[in-house]
Simulated scan of single mutants.
Amino acid sequence: MTLKDAGDGPSLLRWSSWEERFPWLSAGFSTRIGGTSAEPWSSLNCGLHVGDADADVVENRRRVAIAAGFAPEGWTCAEQVHGVQVRVVEASDAGRGFASRDDAIPATDALLTNVPGVMLNSFYADCVPLWFVDPVRRAVGVAHAGWRGSVADIAGETVRAFAKAFGSAPSELYAAIGPSIRGCCYEVDDHVAMHIRKDAESSITPSSPGRYLLDLAKFNRQKLTEAGILPNRIEISQYCTSCRTDLFFSHRKENGRTGRMTAWIARKEEVRRP
């Protein structure tokens, strides 16, 4: 990922390799820099559910949307519940959840669309962001993968939703795994490790009796390949949100009192020539 500083605006990470390969695409991840929120959400908090002033959050979202090249009215998001529900977003859904949680898409952790100008957004402060692109059909998606959603296979459910909604073959898809708490910092107990070990023993490392270091990004990479995405079509960020609280919010490092980054992906509006 490439960090791009917009001067007085928000600092954003972009999937530059995708954006260069697919000029119709915009995809990236916000940092905590360049917003209006006060402590402890300083400054580019994009989550309406963490106790921050709504007006500041909406302004931060507006800044991110504009810096990403979209009208704020296209920002579309869901209430995330650490599940595996996938929603195909239509043109009529555009703008849901932008200014209020009341009209956000309910109980959904993955969003897909092929509608230009609809900016799919989801929120993070250690969990794993997953991006998806079908360049043949110009369909895009984003998924939120905490440990529960990862074990329940939100990655695979999203791939299967692409096939159902757009006819996408898994081998045609590209995927990316963004900044998240990595194996260096994410310690879990036997309960979590038991679920992970069933699918991906290599994603956990014993750290002390009854405790393990878990690399959810690595786990999700395995789930993406099991779902049929080719390994050479999967990009992965090396950023750890817990190590880099200068750039990112970290729920675990900051003891739950912090903001949220947003992952976005969208098709750009098509330019119609006379």
Rank of each mutant, 00 (worst) to 15 (best):
V142S: 10
V142E: 11
V142T: 06
V142Q: 04
V142W: 13
A143P: 05
A143G: 01
A143S: 14
A143W: 07
A143Q: 06
A143N: 11
A143L: 07
H144T: 03
H144L: 11
H144W: 08
H144S: 04
H144F: 13
H144R: 08
A145S: 08
A145W: 09
A145T: 00
A145V: 03
G146E: 11
G146H: 12
G146N: 12
W147T: 14
W147I: 13
W147E: 12
W147V: 14
W147L: 15
R148K: 13
R148I: 02
R148E: 12
R148S: 13
G149R: 02
G149K: 00
G149T: 00
S150F: 14
S150V: 03
S150L: 13
V151W: 13
V151D: 07
V151N: 07
V151F: 12
V151S: 01
V151K: 06
V151E: 03
A152T: 13
A152E: 15
A152W: 15
A152C: 15
A152I: 14
D153K: 10
D153Y: 11
D153I: 11
D153F: 11
D153W: 08
D153T: 10
D153Q: 11
D153H: 12
D153L: 14
I154F: 02
I154C: 09
I154M: 09
I154D: 01
I154N: 03
I154Y: 09
A155D: 04
A155L: 05
G156Y: 12
G156D: 10
G156V: 08
G156N: 13
E157F: 11
E157T: 06
E157P: 00
E157M: 14
E157I: 00
T158P: 10
T158K: 05
T158W: 07
V159A: 04
V159Y: 09
V159R: 08
V159P: 01
V159M: 12
R160W: 08
R160D: 06
R160N: 08
A161C: 00
A161P: 00
A161R: 13
A161W: 05
F162L: 05
F162I: 06
F162T: 08
F162H: 03
F162C: 08
F162A: 07
F162D: 01
F162V: 09
F162E: 09
F162Q: 04
A163M: 10
A163I: 06
K164C: 12
A165H: 10
A165T: 01
A165G: 04
A165P: 08
A165D: 06
A165Q: 04
F166S: 00
F166G: 00
F166R: 03
F166D: 02
F166V: 00
F166C: 00
F166K: 01
G167V: 03
G167K: 09
G167S: 06
G167P: 06
G167I: 03
S168E: 02
S168T: 09
S168N: 04
S168Q: 03
S168K: 02
S168D: 00
A169F: 12
A169P: 05
A169C: 03
A169V: 05
P170C: 09
P170D: 02
P170S: 01
P170L: 02
P170E: 06
P170Q: 04
P170I: 10
S171Q: 15
S171T: 15
S171V: 15
